[in-house]
Design a protein around this nucleic acid. Structure first.
Length: 929
RNA sequence: AGGACUAUAGCUCAGUUGGUUAGAGCGCUACCUUGACAUGGUAGAGGUCCCCGGUUCGAGUCCGGGUAGUCCUACCA
């Protein structure tokens, strides 16, 4: 299957490998649980079945996949449960809009036919999101894919509803709900978005009954006066005390309503008199209950005025009615004044229309009872939030939770298992037949199933266990529940996380997950929320495959209601992406997500980052190319058993990769993917590529080097590469797999895929402190020489002769062992010690500790430039020295700081004193020459 | 109104229990196509750690108070 590469391309081409590897992984069944002692499971937050991938998904899936691949490689029995959500309102709206385009409403079709249409749409478009999840490399177990409306999950939903009903935790009740007059359904509090808008405050005079004078009320909603039941004043408001208990005539309605006293009234606001409309305002409803006021509902379900209102207003839409009421009041001379007023307007999160408090019969979950154990589970640490601060948000909401309205007047969803007879008595059960049997209902009793469906979040709340076969006590349920971690955005903590916790604790007496990892929101480069209407959306797939500018523009401006907005979006898009978007590949995109995934903050998506990580992929690719060029068809000492000799560099990098493994392990354990990715980036680029590969060249390219030494270097090249490929694999699955296929066997690894190899465990025994110190010395010397070369503008090709001076025994030893490295990496013709007693030549100087590095100037270096350079360096060191002297001169510091801190500072001061002295001496010498 | 979070280089961000000269990437400057890589290499420039006060020998880090921004919850008709 694996085609043997004889030659790798010079640049990494992600498109050439990604799809191929994903297909193979899936076909071979690598995504399914592979056994193992410990179970590790994550349930995917089910995306809308007919939706498509956005940046938030990309971020979230990348995090989950890294965790899943990491644990799978650790040898855990790992399940990533996949599935999609039927998304009641959202999906129904899409299909309704499609019908609308053909001039049909869902009512024209009828319920059954309409639902057929929705299923049809699900079949057509349901593959989009799952295909996109695959493009991200997500190692989801597709063999277990579920859908919230499939048979098993629907059965679970019904079971839960019936159980909770019988336990008294679900009840039916009449009360005010948030009513969406466009969608004709109730929605929950969470689905209402209140935003400040400009409006007016109308002051109306209500004449006193049987007396002269009037009360003036202030309202933002004049039309609701048609349903007024009272006027309320504050009980201690002296202005109105004498009127409490009197009646006023409600204009336009020919009714008398009482003046009541209630603490709810704010004396300072408006006139201090509030009209009370119990059927159309949540606060008024409560006031009405306290005073036993009648509920007068004046709206139909589309928020037009109904027959409870005077004839003149019937059938008018609420806005038309508002105008009419205001006009009529003015005509009657009862409009006192109109003020501009900013108010919070509640709108439906789906429809965008103004929500009406509306009196209806609905089904509710008694959330208060369920919340208690759910609060306790977080308090006692059974469930932990990462970052922890979200627990406060959770507690605040849970401690003041309202009952959850779960019925929706929609067609697409789980139908409520309740049947009504003609008297309105209802029976809850799993089917009409079951209900008849249970309640001994005669055949002539006509039963009709409840038309409503359940809130989508009802089925989502059961997700962690319903996907595993509940209510059957399946093997998977025993094995994988509770799940290990939930990865989600803060925006659905209330919608989903809290409800999962409540439902799961109640139904299974166990938590749904042990940890909730809450990630931030992905915003655009300016920090704006990405949204279609703003036209700033970036499709993750476009970052993977690239997209031409024209295609991007038309994608962003398609279906815009306002043409001027489209023009603006087009302009902004052309400015931001003048050449469209380049193809960066999945690995680069994923790595970008990780690098930005520090906890507790939103992420601004900067296109420059992904470009940098695309380059990183290319770096990895070329490093592997170099290693393979030098190791393929060569004796790498991995299988032959022949002797190998490890160089200093070999021992150094072998330890460094272990340090990296330890850092990555710690970072992932803390969900710090940014730190994990950074540790790998720095190790691979700055240590392995920049230093180790360069240090390998003097050995591999030296004809005089021994066979053992060459074997040792090849062995280390390939082994260390193989280790960091595995370390990196959870984050960059494709490129690591592609390279590992060639590298693994050379490193003595067998197996069909890197996916199922063991994750490297940090082994501190491999860390060679002496080798690390030696290489640090070597780096310091090389950097000193390069710095002179760079600042003195010495041509890079020019080989230098370098003299060393003032070294101790360590330096002597190190030079002896490393002169070859030095020659190669610093491009030296020769390096040697200045003989004792010999005159110091005219030279540029650098320091590595106390060691003095002299680059003789002989025609190479401008004397004045070196003087300037030395002065600058001396200035820098003296600055530091002054600071240190002040610190150590402070008796308080020397007395109170820990001894080791003081000692360290003293050491530093001495070193800097030495450095200044050396540099001064050198400066003096050069001046004199 | 209550609460949370954020403020560090031109930009995007790290900075563990307080203790080297506060770091990285991108961008910028100069030089370089040397046999893995110009999606590269080498060297450099660039910071009043938002402001004020406090604790401490010592504060980017801890405490208090401000300022600015983002968000959540609730909401005065």
């Amino acid at each position: 299957m694996t085609s043997r590469r004889t030659r790798m391309d010079k640049t990494f081409q992600p498109a050439a490998i990604e799809t191929r590897w994903y297909e193979e992984w899936e076909a071979k069944g690598y995504f399914a649980p592979q056994g193992g002692e410990k179970a590790y499971s994550i349930m995917i937050p089910p995306p809308n079945v007919t939706g498509s991938l956005h940046m938030g998904h990309g971020f979230q899936e990348a995090i989950m996949d890294a965790l899943i691949r990491y644990h799978r490689m650790l040898g855990d029995n790992t399940l990533w449960q996949v599935g999609t959500d039927h998304a009641g309102i959202a999906t129904q709206m899409v299909v309704e809009r499609q019908l609308e385009a053909q001039g049909i409403s869902r009512h024209d079709l009828g319920r059954e036919k309409f639902i057929e249409k929705v299923w049809q749409w699900k079949e057509e478009s349901g593959g989009t999101i799952t295909g996109q999840l695959r493009r991200l490399g997500s190692s989801l177990d597709w063999s277990r894919e579920r859908f919230t409306m499939d048979e098993g999950l629907s059965a679970a939903v019904q079971e839960v509803f019936i159980r909770l009903y019988r336990e008294g935790l679900i009840y039916r009740g009449q009360r005010l709900v948030n009513w969406d007059p466009a969608l004709h359904t109730a929605i929950s509090d969470l689905e209402v978005i209140s935003e400040p808008e400009q409006g007016h405050l109308w002051h109306f005079n209500y004449p006193l009954a049987g007396a002269e004078g009037y009360l003036t009320v202030a309202t933002t909603r004049p039309e609701t006066m048609l349903g007024d039941s009272a006027v309320a004043v504050h009980p201690e408001d002296e202005r109105y005390a004498h009127l409490i208990g009197r009646m006023v005539r409600l204009p336009l309605c020919d009714r008398e309503i009482p003046v009541i006293a209630d603490e709810y009234v704010e004396r300072e606001f408006g006139t201090g008199c509030v009209k009370i409309t119990p059927a159309h305002d949540f606060n008024d409803y409560e006031v009405g209950r306290r005073h036993s006021l009648p509920l007068i509902n004046i709206f139909n379900d589309d928020a037009a005025i109904n027959d409870q209102a005077p004839l003149a207003y019937r059938g008018l839409d609420r806005l038309a009615a508002r105008q009419q009421v205001v006009d009529d009041m003015q005509t009657l001379g009862l409009l006192d004044k109109v003020e501009d007023h900013q108010l919070n307007v509640p709108r439906g999160d789906r429809s965008g229309v103004v929500i009406e408090p509306y009196l209806t019969d609905q089904w509710y979950v008694d959330a208060r009872k369920l919340a208690k154990p759910a609060i306790a589970a977080v308090e006692n640490g059974s469930i932990q939030f990462v970052p922890k601060q979200w627990e406060n948000t959770y507690f605040a909401w849970m401690r003041d939770i309202q009952d959850w309205c779960i019925s929706r007047q929609l067609w697409w969803g789980h139908r409520i298992p309740a049947w009504y007879d003609t008297q309105g008595t209802f029976y809850v059960g799993e089917s009409e037949a079951a209900v008849r049997l249970e309640h001994a209902l005669e055949a002539e009793v006509v039963l009709r199933q409840d038309d409503d469906v359940l809130d989508t979040w009802f089925s989502s709340a059961l997700w962690t266990f319903s996907t595993l076969g509940w209510p059957e006590e399946t093997e998977e349920l025993a094995l994988f529940h509770p799940s290990s971690v939930l990865v989600t955005g803060f925006d659905i903590i209330f919608f989903w996380v809290a409800r999962m916790i409540m439902m799961t604790l109640h139904l299974r007496q166990e938590v749904p997950f042990h940890t909730v990892y809450v990630h931030g929101l992905v915003r655009d480069g300016e920090g704006q929320k990405m949204s279609k209407s703003k036209g700033n959306v970036i499709d993750p797939i476009d970052l993977i495959d690239g997209i031409e500018l024209e295609a991007l523009v038309s994608k962003r401006t398609a279906g815009m209601m306002q043409p001027q907005l489209a023009a603006k979006i087009e302009k902004a898009t052309r400015r931001q992406f003048p050449d469209g978007i380049e193809p960066y590949g999945t690995d680069a995109l994923r790595f970008t997500y990780y690098s930005l995934a520090s906890t507790g903050r939103d992420i601004k998506f900067d296109i420059g980052r992904i470009e940098g990580y695309r380059n990183f992929c290319n770096k990895i690719w070329n490093a592997a190319r170099y290693v393979l060029m030098n190791c393929e068809n060569e004796d790498c000492g991995t299988s032959s058993g022949s002797a190998v000799e490890l160089s200093l560099a070999d021992r150094w990098i072998t330890g460094k990769v272990q340090e990296t493994a330890a850092q990555v392990e710690r970072a992932i354990g803390n969900y710090r993917f940014d730190l994990a990715s950074q540790a790998l980036y720095e190790f691979i680029w700055n240590e392995y590529c920049d230093w180790y590969l360069e240090l390998s060249k003097p050995i591999l390219w030296d004809d005089d080097a021994s066979a053992q030494a060459k074997r040792g270097t090849r062995q280390t090249l390939i082994r260390v590469l193989e280790i960091w490929l595995r370390l990196l694999h959870p984050m960059m699955p494709f490129i690591t797999e592609e390279i590992w296929q060639a590298v693994g066997p050379l490193a003595g690894k067998t197996g069909p895929t890197i996916m199922l190899q063991a994750y490297p465990q940090a082994n501190e025994g491999d860390i060679d402190a002496r080798a690390i110190a030696d290489i640090e010395w070597l780096k310091a010397v090389i950097l000193g020489i390069r710095s002179i070369r760079g600042e003195m503008n010495i041509p890079p090709g020019k080989a230098l002769t370098v003299l060393l001076r003032n070294g101790d025994q360590n330096d002597q030893l190190r030079l002896a062992e490393n002169s070859q490295y030095l020659r190669k990496l610093a491009k030296l013709a020769d390096v040697s010690w200045l003989p004792a007693g010999a005159a110091v030549p005219m030279a540029a100087t650098a320091l590595a500790g106390e060691l003095e590095i002299l680059v003789p100037m002989a025609g190479l270096i401008d004397k004045d430039a070196e003087v300037a350079r030395l002065k600058k360096e001396i200035g820098r060191v003296e600055n530091d020295l002054t600071r240190l002297q002040a610190k150590l001169g402070n008796a308080a510091f020397v007395d109170k700081a820990p001894v080791d801190v003081v000692a360290k500072e003293q050491e530093k001061m001495q070193a800097q004193q030495q450095a200044v002295a050396t540099l001064q001496e050198q400066l003096q010498r050069i001046r004199e020459m």
